[in-house]
Design a binder for these strands. Sequence first.
DNA 1: CCTAGCATGTAATACGTTACATGATTCA
DNA 2: TGAATCATGTAACGTATTACATGCTAGG
Lengths: 175, 175
Amino acid sequence: MSRLTATAKVILGLLKFGARTGYDVKRVTDLSTRFFWRASYGQIYPELRALEQAGLVRARDEPRGRRPRHVYALTAAGDRALLAWLQEGEDTYELRDEGLLRLFFGELLPPDDLRALVRRRREWFEASAVHFRGIATELGELDDPSGEVLRYGIELMDWNAAWWRDLEDRLGSAP
Amino acid sequence: MSRLTATAKVILGLLKFGARTGYDVKRVTDLSTRFFWRASYGQIYPELRALEQAGLVRARDEPRGRRPRHVYALTAAGDRALLAWLQEGEDTYELRDEGLLRLFFGELLPPDDLRALVRRRREWFEASAVHFRGIATELGELDDPSGEVLRYGIELMDWNAAWWRDLEDRLGSAP
DNA sequence: CCTAGCATGTAATACGTTACATGATTCA
DNA sequence: TGAATCATGTAACGTATTACATGCTAGG
């Protein structure tokens, strides 16, 4: 069995956690892993078929009325693949932050424009923190590992907001 | 003029900052923007030609001996495009963190394996922080915006290391 | 009855990495 | 003379988004 794709990893995990359809997987990722692990329909549906082909999931037709509906579940092999992935291998960490790139070239900007850019970034992270807190309120207190991940999201946004605010303060007092 | 690609943005900025060849761009990104804005040869060389076609950069042949060498510089239009990008538009922020995804599914793991995963992650961020501090030492004190970005890298790795360490401590004392 | 949500899927396009291929020059 | 660095480039593959296309069902 070759290595799992990025989308396969989140699909297998979510199926184990109770997701049943491709639509389900999309909805749950959008509410939970979105900020550190995205998945689009263009990946999910083809990947579900590939996983079925590989014998890691099994599909059953469970239409709702005359609307077609494919319900997926892990096979024993899928279960093993999920556990194996969770236990081994390198963790990737990738960031793409356009605000940082703009800041990197900040010397090219008039000071007022640089300050505006820093302010926008600080505001964006503040708004994100509020957004994550809203999700936390909706979901209530989660005492399991997935709750830790949500806490990570909140705290990361807070940390970023604080970092950009600190820079903003220092730029504001500059000549 | 259509919008700049991700690679175009870092190329234009670095050419303005003194980079001259595609090789140069690669080397500088690897030492500076790498952790939040990567670029590979497979993107850089084709993009340089596209930018030339679009009139944003101009190329001159400046071979070293009999080794071919293409030196690039911004045109007036390239200069304007760079400044325009720096001043306007949404900032993207994207994260891919496999450690978080594993943690998200952490309920599926035996407690010892979960602890091992958290420990690995904490160690990885600690090593990254050391790596960034090494770069900072090498470059000396930078008082300009690009120095702020390096500081961001160091502090982000520190923050991550502290977050995972805190989780590790709490898991360690669990039953 | 109408709207929001459930549900599936593809095509076009773009983004991006990795591995390979090649070879000159510089410095120890 | 040998290793490190400078330097260019492509092909194959893999990853991912966006926009489009379709239509049913549940609940107010």
